[in-house]
Nucleic acid binder design. Sequence first.
DNA 1: TGGGAATTTATCATGTACGGTAATTTACCG
DNA 2: CGGTAAATTACCGTACATGATAAATTCCCA
Lengths: 93, 93
Amino acid sequence: MIKSPQLEEWTKKIGQRLRTLRHAQGLSLEDLSRLSGATAPTLSNIERGTRDVKLSTLVSLTAALRTELPLLFEESQNTDQSSGLPGYDLDDD
Amino acid sequence: MIKSPQLEEWTKKIGQRLRTLRHAQGLSLEDLSRLSGATAPTLSNIERGTRDVKLSTLVSLTAALRTELPLLFEESQNTDQSSGLPGYDLDDD
DNA sequence: TGGGAATTTATCATGTACGGTAATTTACCG
DNA sequence: CGGTAAATTACCGTACATGATAAATTCCCA
């Protein structure tokens, strides 16, 4: 895979946003793994921007994080759903 | 690949937008193939929404179409650069 | 500072996106 | 209609995203 600067920018930006969203909800990689179906190592790679991620993966991750896909691409956004969320019930799998 | 309704929505929406953008610039699949590096069959599949496309592909396509990646994901947008474009010079590759 | 949780890294297997190419079908325009 | 361009479909081969799992590393807090 030839990695253009453009692609690198996006993979990093998207990864950071996913991690921010996950942390904002107090989820570990394993938590999100359970919620999304992606394995923890895969999530780690994606959040660090080392993967050429597929659309299907982004869709399932945004669903698991209860956010919208376009949020990952918006130019300037407030990922700030900082603390008080409706809340995941981690026992409900 | 398990295809959720969500994913299907996005692949179709993105495909349609890409095709609209391409047509708006009077490009054939082969034209865009030359500009983007993706082959014409691949482009055909993506535009018809039959592919779980990778981020790198979307990045190169939006670059070739001289548009921005977030445009593919925006909720309501005007893809309407209908007719009179600055215009590609197909000889300049 | 010690120890468990969280994350990262490392393997291996599998599925599939994508390139390349050719053949077929469809669309368009005289 | 007929013919050419455009698009779709069909193969094959390769690369790599991802799952599954385990090991190593880093984090963090009592």
